[in-house]
Design a protein around this nucleic acid. Structure first.
Lengths: 162, 162
DNA sequence: GGCGATTAAATGCATCTGCATGAAATAGTC
DNA sequence: GACTATTTCATGCAGATGCATTTAATCGCC
């Protein structure tokens, strides 16, 4: 029952862990040096800015970002503290709420995307042809624990990570 | 100067972040459920067990594992607390020390490898042919921030992650 | 309508992390 | 040898995270 992985699979595992870690670190560092908050903030702001009226339920955000519930709760706290989002009462379900992105939030998201996209280009785009990037996506998707993400909806003004 | 990444590159970035996160989580969870400590412990034990006489300098460990200095220091603390490793005086450089893996440490490393390798097989090996795993390695290596790792020395009784 | 089960969100607590700094020893230089 | 710079490792502190629990509201069912 406990089959061992092939050396190829093991090597892939190691690469996946190491390379992701290095690339993420590099990108996060660049954002930090540019004076921006962590990537998680960007992801949240992006999700919010994409929502129909700029607002969504914390539960939604949680599902989109794939982070634990308490983590979402605290992330929202911080965004609200910084004036990047605001909590709104949810009339149809009083145990819940809505989180709405503010103008400042939208601006920050856009500014961050400049630095963020430049970092992606620097650490990923410039090292891989588009064709290879597609191949890489294909291989990675096969590992995706059925995290059936919507296609490549990403691009165009923002990329959610994590 | 601030070129934007192609949608393909952006998609690859997203996949890299998401898939790694999911796979790592899955593997860590399995280890945890089996009652084992975090992967970082395994990595450290593996490095130590591979060292010539089962001991190495914290600085070495730090370089191998690519984690910050303070992180190494505290990791060693925990290993020592659990009797998996022991600090030894370093006679040739009294500001330093040696960390030596104990018998219990070696045993834990081996036991963990059983669970760990099974998890790798389950979450990576079983989803990719060897040929595809090799392709994936090749593509990921190109992103490797010149983290010029030794070839595929990994396999065969242990795989360092992170 | 009443009531237990479920869901949404927050929070207390222990642990972990990052960052900066400190303490001790060695290396380099004159 | 004296003095500064560098290297090795530890640690105090603030902030972040994981986990379990709490509070409040809705749902399902009779």
């Amino acid at each position: 029952m406990k089959r061992k992985p092939s050396t190829e699979a093991t090597a892939a595992w190691i690469r996946l862990m190491r390379v992701q870690s290095r690339v993420l670190d590099a990108v996060e560092q660049e954002l930090k040096k540019a004076g921006f908050p962590p990537l998680a903030w960007y992801d949240a702001l992006l999700e919010l800015s994409r929502a129909p009226s700029g607002e969504m339920r914390p539960v939604e955000l949680e599902k989109q970002m794939l982070i634990p519930q308490y983590s979402t709760s605290r992330l929202i706290d911080r965004l609200v503290d910084e004036g990047l989002a605001a909590r709104r009462e949810c009339k149809i379900d009083k145990r819940g709420q809505f989180v709405e992105i503010t103008e400042a939030g939208r601006e920050l998201q856009k500014k961050m995307w400049n630095a963020y996209s430049a970092a992606i280009e620097k650490h990923v785009g410039s090292k891989l042809s588009d064709a290879d990037a597609v191949k890489l996506c294909g291989l990675l998707d096969r590992l995706g624990c059925s995290c059936g993400e919507a296609p490549v909806l990403a691009a165009r003004d923002g990329a959610p990570a994590r």
